[in-house]
Design a protein around this nucleic acid. Structure first.
Lengths: 222, 222, 222, 222
DNA sequence: AATGAATGAGAATTCATTCAT
DNA sequence: CATGAATGAATTCTCATTCAT
């Protein structure tokens, strides 16, 4: 437990070696999966000595942990990228969705794939952390949708929309094998349209409710 | 590779033991993942002798193969279930979607999860087979949508809708950890609505194109 | 933690293999020490497969634990042997001492040596157990001395005598390298005489105290 | 092997660093044992760079060798201390014994413990040297006893007494865990008395033999 | 003379699979 | 056809030692 402290003195060397290792490991994990990838392979591919490896990571699992940490939060791509893309009004809604999907599919695809496939390899303590980050991210999405639709509060329906959005982020990473690059670009618009269509319904339902605040309005389903 | 032929004579015994093993293995795989599950655990849980196991499966991976084979095609739940639910006209569209999602989330959730997480453990030959089944299934979905929308042919947009649909099938299996049972039920309608909304757009666009067949109509991107 | 349960079914096979392993291991430990002895060597010497080893012991340390357990208590040599040799009166005192030294030096020498050298390899929980057994043994010795000297209670001086006795048990195991076999036999009488001489002083001091119960009598030391 | 020659020029630096290292190492060896102590720990504790270490010792084992060398002979505590305490007549006998035990238990306890536990880690050549020193020390003890008892020559019985004495030196270092500090002080007198009592018998037997030089007198053995 | 990173042999242990009965 | 012990290749990780700066 507890944060691993490297014995190596130069921080820039630590960063460099970790980068080497993570890069090689991600490649191997993507191709073979976490378990089927051996330390031997990782060290050979990253050109880091098998003994030296343990100066930079505490053990094999630690690579996964670092990947998720680096890519998901702290200095991570997720937050940083998305923090810059904030929704302030209705006009931002569509570009916001497109942007996030685009980044998720084309830049973070590998991490997302890993996230779905290999979280089971994480020890429970860190797993909980990862899931918490995911939850927080979904909440952040929901709040952005709220602003984009000018709604007063985050409703359960907004949460479902956010969950769908988060799930769409893994669409291409998980199902990309069934598509050509061309299709992926078209899919971006298709999915954006689908989500926008659903959000519009959500908005119009809200308006209806405002006019007749005493009546619950839902369409009956089987 | 080639098909594994058991030495055991009685087919009903083979079926029985395989069922025992698959049932126990799926349970363990779901909880711990394929690699973290040992043959010892599988044999103990299924009450099959560790030596006898190899009379019913050729090796550990073979269990996965059989699970996918059994659950996805041949006697599989997928086709069988869905074959009975065919779309013949527009009125079937919504119930069709709801039904498929419902079955996927509540009956086939475990297999779907396995499919996303552990296909990497399969040797490439069988992996290709699995992916082919998936593709075929998606095509079948697209054709049903076509019938539901009364369109003359399967367009690229219909294919994308089908891909989305197939992807939604794994929504709860993969992201269920973030939802209560209650939410899952509401989500069923939410997703159905979203897909229906997109299909309606698709239909109306088709109508527009029929009236002005010479003009390409697309919305601007980014 | 907790008792290791072997998966092997036949108890007699477990006993046989453990015996093989312990015998080979003790030999190697004596020559090279615990740490310098590898599992490879133990398995080769005991003719037990390197994988099979873990069907009979939970790990390397477990060998040490078993040696101490087997040799020190439960079915162990210590208790069994000594239980039969009980002091009931003054005439038993000298034979009792001689017998215990003899057994310790000639039959349990290897274990005693191990006990002094390798207890540091034991995990703290089991180490405490071992030390408790030692303490109990020393108390048992003290009580026998008490009976042999016909004293009413175990005094601090009796405890010191017992501690000395327990320490003498490791004389030859620890310092045997400085003696020929011939010397060891003579040493048996020499040490017995020494302890007897001290016990006689102890007894006579007790008598003196009984006559003048109000006066503390001790010789002054620097 | 042969003596290790340091590349370092300043002898006082060599001495200083070796002292640093030995001091830290002894502490760690006592607590954890030789094998469980890593070079990392030794270098951290002694504040000597892990690379520099090999400028002052040839390898890990060399620390042990130096400890024994430094503490046992040459500039060693043993000889120096004891040389000052020489027996010239019967009156010196008891103080001599007390003094040696006291020093062994309270000043050299750690080295003695190490000597019993870790000599096995020494390569055979140096081991022989260590044992030789021990033998010489025992002979020196025997000769002092001879002078204290005014005997003409060192008999086998005197040798046994000296061996016992040498063994008593390790009593508290090896069995101290079973005693409080208070007990250790009382034990000093108890053991001194025991040895003195035995030596008196030895002396009186000598006198008897002198009177009847033709008769062998021994007590019967089991 | 000090520093600190690199090296790689070797350790304990696991586990799918085989095989004799 | 079942049983359960044996097999051994492969895995992760440690650590004394070396080496370039």
């Amino acid at each position: 437990m507890g944060e691993f402290i490297s014995h190596i003195k130069k921080p820039e060397l630590i960063a460099k070696r970790r980068e080497q290792i993570i890069s090689a490991a991600m490649d191997l994990f993507r191709k073979q999966g976490y378990y089927a990838t051996t330390m031997r392979q990782i060290c050979t591919a990253s050109k880091v000595n098998r003994g030296s490896f343990y100066d930079y990571f505490s053990n094999k699992e630690d690579i996964l942990v670092h990947i998720f940490k680096t890519k998901m939060y702290s200095s991570g791509d997720f937050k940083k990228t998305f923090a810059e893309r904030h929704i302030s009004g209705p006009r931002d809604l569509r570009p916001f969705i497109r942007h996030i999907l685009n980044v998720s599919w084309n830049r973070n695809g590998d991490v997302i794939k890993l996230l779905f496939r290999e979280t089971i390899a994480l020890d429970s303590e860190f797993l909980r952390m990862v899931l918490n980050v995911e939850s927080a991210y979904t909440k952040w999405l929901a709040d952005n949708f709220r602003r984009g639709l000018k709604l007063p509060a985050v409703t359960k329906e907004l949460e479902m929309a956010a969950n769908s959005m988060a799930f769409f982020c893994s669409f291409v990473p998980l199902r990309g094998w069934n598509m050509r690059d061309l299709d992926k670009t078209e899919l971006l618009d298709f999915i954006t349209d689908m989500l926008m269509a659903r959000l519009k319904i959500l908005k119009s339902e809200f308006r209806k409710k405002q006019k007749q605040p005493s009546l619950e309005s839902k369409h009956g389903n089987t």
